Measured scan of single mutants.
Amino acid sequence: MSIQHFRVALIPFFAAFCLPVFAHPETLVKVKDAEDQLGARVGYIELDLNSGKILESFRPEERFPMMSTFKVLLCGAVLSRVDAGQEQLGRRIHYSQNDLVEYSPVTEKHLTDGMTVRELCSAAITMSDNTAANLLLTTIGGPKELTAFLHNMGDHVTRLDRWEPELNEAIPNDERDTTMPAAMATTLRKLLTGELLTLASRQQLIDWMEADKVAGPLLRSALPAGWFIADKSGAGERGSRGIIAALGPDGKPSRIVVIYTTGSQATMDERNRQIAEIGASLIKHW
């Protein structure tokens, strides 16, 4: 067993022997301040990774656009098919120029040779490549099948209805392509620590998230040296922004954090800054 596999296998073990965790309302004060600064709703939840206990939450059962955070769930569904012998990570998928959609920095470079399922998941999570996500959605049967996968996990809230990039439209009061912070946090925890996926697939999923290259201005910008984070960000229309993450000190994750916002007129930089400040408060009061 590799060191990384050992780390993920012992996530519940280490967490069980940690000192009790206590909620700190100071972080919620910052979440509410972010709402004021952005002029928009902000949803927040913080779960203990081992027990699933909610440590703090704000608007945990209000719907927010998922945006690209759905790509972690998508690759979880792909990995479940791999575990069941219905898919192979090494299978190569070929596609054409007509398949390319807006923001496809990886797939646009491989029109000639195609990409493997493993490479597509890596591109979808680490670079948020939209064509990679659409190609992977095709392998599982489309958005409705991802929703069905989530329902089978016990998540009857999260739903995907459309493809990239239309799913980022974020129309107010439109339930399409949305989740709730509580539902997303619980589902992410199941994917990373539950028995739904094999140990190898859980490790692969967290490795992809740990290698995320496009979430630097968010929670990662607030992390002290030595902290662990595996995350996936999302951005959408109407001032929408979000991030889902597993993080913790001492090089291992111990909490799940989900943050979503929508309806702001603020710039992307300002949305990023507010999420980073929430992260800084979380870490300060850990």
Score class of each variant (00 low, 15 high):
T187S: 13
H110N: 13
P249G: 06
T126L: 08
V42K: 02
S281D: 10
S264F: 05
M67S: 11
T267Q: 12
G236M: 03
R241L: 04
A132I: 01
T139I: 14
L74A: 07
E26L: 11
Y260K: 01
M67G: 12
E26T: 10
T116C: 07
N173T: 11
E237W: 13
L135C: 05
E56T: 11
A170R: 08
V214S: 07
N168V: 05
V31K: 01
E195H: 15
N272I: 04
E175Y: 14
E175A: 12
L137D: 00
M209C: 06
I229N: 01
Q97C: 06
D33I: 11
D161K: 02
Q204Y: 09
A222R: 12
L199I: 15
P165I: 08
V72E: 07
R159S: 09
K30G: 04
V72R: 00
T131C: 09
T186M: 15
C121T: 02
G279M: 07
S240Y: 03
A133V: 04
A183P: 07
P60S: 15
D155L: 00
T27C: 05
D129L: 00
A225G: 12
N173C: 12
G154T: 05
K190F: 12
S80E: 15
T158M: 02
L282M: 13
Q204P: 04
G39R: 13
R92P: 08
D48G: 06
G242Y: 01
V101K: 09
T262Y: 10
L167M: 11
A84V: 12
G242S: 08
L223Y: 03
I278H: 03
A246G: 07
V29S: 15
S254W: 10
I125P: 01
I140W: 05
G142S: 07
D250I: 11
K284L: 12
Y95M: 07
G226I: 04
V101H: 07
K232L: 00
C121E: 00
G141V: 04
A148F: 12
I275S: 02
F228D: 04
S240M: 04
T158R: 02
I275P: 01
A245T: 06
L111Q: 11
F228Y: 15
E46G: 05
W227I: 03
V157R: 11
H151W: 13
L167Y: 00
F58V: 10
D33H: 12
M153K: 07
P25Q: 13
E270N: 11
S221I: 11
T262C: 09
C121R: 00
P217R: 09
E166S: 13
T27G: 04
T262S: 11
T261E: 07
R91W: 05
I125E: 00
G248S: 03
E210A: 10
P181F: 00
R63G: 03
F149V: 09
E270R: 09
I45R: 04
N130E: 00
V101E: 08
L38Y: 09
K32F: 08
I244G: 03
T158L: 02
G216N: 10
P65N: 04
F228L: 06
L191F: 11
D155F: 02
P172E: 13
Q203Y: 09
L160T: 09
L196A: 13
T131A: 11
T158W: 01
N98H: 15
E56N: 11
E169G: 11
L197H: 06
L218C: 04
L49P: 05
T147F: 00
S201Q: 07
S240L: 01
G194P: 10
T193F: 13
D113T: 13
T27H: 06
T69Y: 01
V106I: 15
T138V: 12
D250E: 14
T147R: 10
M268Q: 09
I278V: 10
D99H: 10
R41L: 09
G76F: 05
F58D: 01
L282V: 13
Y95W: 14
A245K: 03
H110P: 04
L167E: 02
S122V: 12
A133P: 02
E56A: 10
L247S: 03
H151Y: 13
I93E: 04
L160K: 03
M127H: 08
G251I: 08
A34F: 08
D269Q: 12
G76M: 06
R63S: 07
H285E: 09
R63F: 07
T179V: 03
P224D: 06
K32Q: 15
A84I: 12
F228A: 08
K144S: 12
H151E: 14
G43H: 00
M153S: 11
V214A: 08
G251H: 12
I275F: 15
V157F: 11
G239E: 04
P172I: 10
D33E: 13
W227L: 00
T27P: 06
M209T: 00
A123T: 06
G248V: 00
K232H: 00
E108H: 12
T198A: 12
I125Q: 00
T147G: 09
T178C: 06
V72H: 02
K53Q: 15
D207R: 14
D269Y: 11
A235N: 05
V72G: 02
L218I: 05
P105H: 06
V117N: 04
K53T: 13
E35Y: 00
V82A: 11
G242R: 03
V82G: 06
R202W: 05
L282D: 03
A123N: 04
D155I: 02
Q203R: 10
L120F: 04
E145G: 13
Q203T: 10
W227R: 01
G251S: 13
Q86D: 15
